[in-house]
């Protein structure tokens, strides 16, 4: 914990305990999103699904990076992660990003009708990639609301948390744009990451050095 680091934030008029609640909730959301994106990514198959696998991977690793970047700030301010992961997951600031029905149904319901010499190929319902992208884009929109809120809360008062939240916000906005563009919601301004999960904005806050070359 940084004693003066906390005092100056308090002196600036921030309720540090409330801020810590927001930061732990944000860290929880990143951690659970990393988990759920792992499931979404492995289910992103087929001609269309394989095409979006790389950006799901970028977003997945960058969300893990966000968790890594948030944790030191939580402890600097005198906070902590819950000892038990279950309440940590429950207090996550965004809901769980479940596999949609069109991908997560009982295997038998997803099978194609036609038999082949190898048995039945697993069928995929026509909207499954759209449904997957919708789950992803809405998860990113939730993250944007989360970090916008933390930016508003800390602006001009807690400079270090503000800069960190702003860096994460920048990446969440890019993630939203990627998925939104794949949904065809608007023209694309999307450039590839140099390598998966490179975190161009957040990397400088990461002490664990994951996801970087």
């Amino acid at each position: 914990m940084g004693k003066v680091a906390r005092q100056v934030v308090e002196a600036a008029g921030i309720n540090v305990n409330e801020l810590l609640t927001k930061l732990v909730a944000a860290a929880g959301a990143e951690f659970t999103t990393f988990y759920y994106y792992t499931i979404l990514r492995v289910n992103s198959i087929g001609l269309e699904g394989e095409g979006i696998k790389e950006i799901i991977e970028d977003a997945r690793i960058e969300d893990r990076n966000h968790f890594e970047a948030l944790v030191p700030r939580i402890y600097e301010l005198g906070g902590k992660l819950p000892d038990d992961i279950r309440p940590f997951a429950d207090q996550a600031g965004c809901p769980d990003a479940y596999l949609p029905d069109t991908l997560g149904g009982v295997a038998a319901e997803r099978r194609g009708a036609g038999r082949t010499t190898f048995g039945e190929y697993p069928g995929r319902q026509p909207s499954s990639v759209q449904d997957l992208l919708t789950v992803l884009v809405e998860a990113e929109r939730c993250a944007i609301r989360t970090y916008t809120d933390i930016c508003h809360y800390t602006f001009g008062k807690d400079h270090r948390t503000y800069e960190l939240a702003l860096a994460i916000l920048n990446e969440e906005i890019e993630h939203e744009a990627w998925f939104s563009e794949f949904l065809g919601e608007g023209p694309s301004g999307h450039f590839r990451r140099g390598s998966p999960g490179v975190s161009p904005y957040v990397a400088r806050y990461m002490t664990a050095d994951v996801g970087r070359q």
Partner: peptide, 28 residues
């Protein structure tokens, strides 16, 4: 209205939950 705790969205006219319920699978 965007709830500050888990960022669920509720339509203030209909009262419907706009996020995340419509995205949830049936079991959830």
């Amino acid at each position: 209205i965007d709830c500050p705790r888990h960022h669920y969205l509720f339509d203030v006219h209909s009262g419907d939950n706009l996020f995340p319920l419509p995205l949830y699978p049936m079991w959830k």
